[in-house]
Design a protein around this nucleic acid. Structure first.
Lengths: 165, 165
DNA sequence: CATAATGTTCAATTTATACTGAACATATCA
DNA sequence: TGATATGTTCAGTATAAATTGAACATTATG
């Protein structure tokens, strides 16, 4: 099939459905819609696409496309391929669930976990310098938080293991 | 400590921090801010609170409070307690991570998983009734999607197991 | 060096989502 | 029964987030 025609044609039903699927996934993962669209397009595309390919086929702006690709790169959901004699960057979708999950965990989840750790530390500090009649009860609750935190920290890597290759 | 005074006083630093922590958690889980606030307040409160207690202390609207409590009830993050001689509903925070995670999974995650299953079925249908030169490649990709779906379905219950009691 | 090609950034705008508050439903009480 | 207390619903509004597009970097090319 002619490359130019292929890139130029409107999205057929199946591509639409696949992209829609990834839009929903993006939504669940708290990622912008455009990120789902771009990943879906790259996932179903038979060859690498550049920024403009995505922009045109999805009918979204340059800025959104650039941001979207950046986010996808940030957790390893896409990978750059070099095409000789072309200055543009071309992308393909990474298909290893393991890689993506691990990238997503470390880039999008861990920061929140660490943020939570900090905050719990600060809460403990506030309790320590406080004199109150229900100090013990409060301490129990903070201990509960610490326990959740610990379990979250341990479960995350286990999940990645479970997801396998 | 006097019950009336206690309920009426402004939120002290520690409660603020705890609530802030749950606001962040709610954000990660794609839940409205108010849901995090309400859960946080109930979590740190030493006694059950009714809708109006939450509304007043958090300074949010009746509607938000009602909706938030409904969402928290929907996945078992809070529990109603009966207080004799009072017509109001009183709530306490559920503290079993297991219960909450399982409720959250079945109420907030599984519907998306099922939705995805449906869509993948539809995509397979579209491919079946199509004659294209790259049919095999596309079938491989759909198979990949099915594989992800299957692993997601199997991993979810395992996560719940891991989280333990 | 000037021009063109490519990608990034960010202020302004649009869009999606959550929140508000008044009207409503329901239950209790006098 | 009418008045009061409690909670829900939902149309309108406010808020937060994503998107746009033009200006700006950067790099290549003639």
């Amino acid at each position: 099939m002619n490359q130019v025609l292929k890139k130029g044609r409107v999205l057929p039903d199946m591509e639409r459905e696949v992209i829609e699927l990834f839009i929903r996934m993006a939504d669940v993962l708290n990622l912008p819609r455009s990120v789902g669209e771009i990943y879906g397009l790259l996932f179903i595309s038979s060859d690498p696409l550049c920024l403009d390919d995505c922009r045109i086929r999805l009918n979204i702006s340059k800025g959104s496309t650039s941001q979207g690709l950046k986010i996808l790169r940030s957790f390893g959901a896409i990978r750059t391929v070099y095409i000789p004699g072309d200055r543009k960057d071309y992308y393909v979708a990474e298909t290893s669930l393991r890689k993506m999950a691990s990238g997503f965990a470390s880039e999008q989840i861990l920061p929140h976990v660490h943020n939570g750790e900090d905050r719990i530390g600060r809460i403990q500090g506030l309790l320590d310098q406080q004199e109150s009649d229900d100090k013990e009860t409060l301490q129990e609750k903070i201990d509960l938080l610490k326990n959740w935190q610990k379990r979250a920290g341990k479960t995350l890597p286990l999940i990645l293991k479970l997801i396998g290759s």
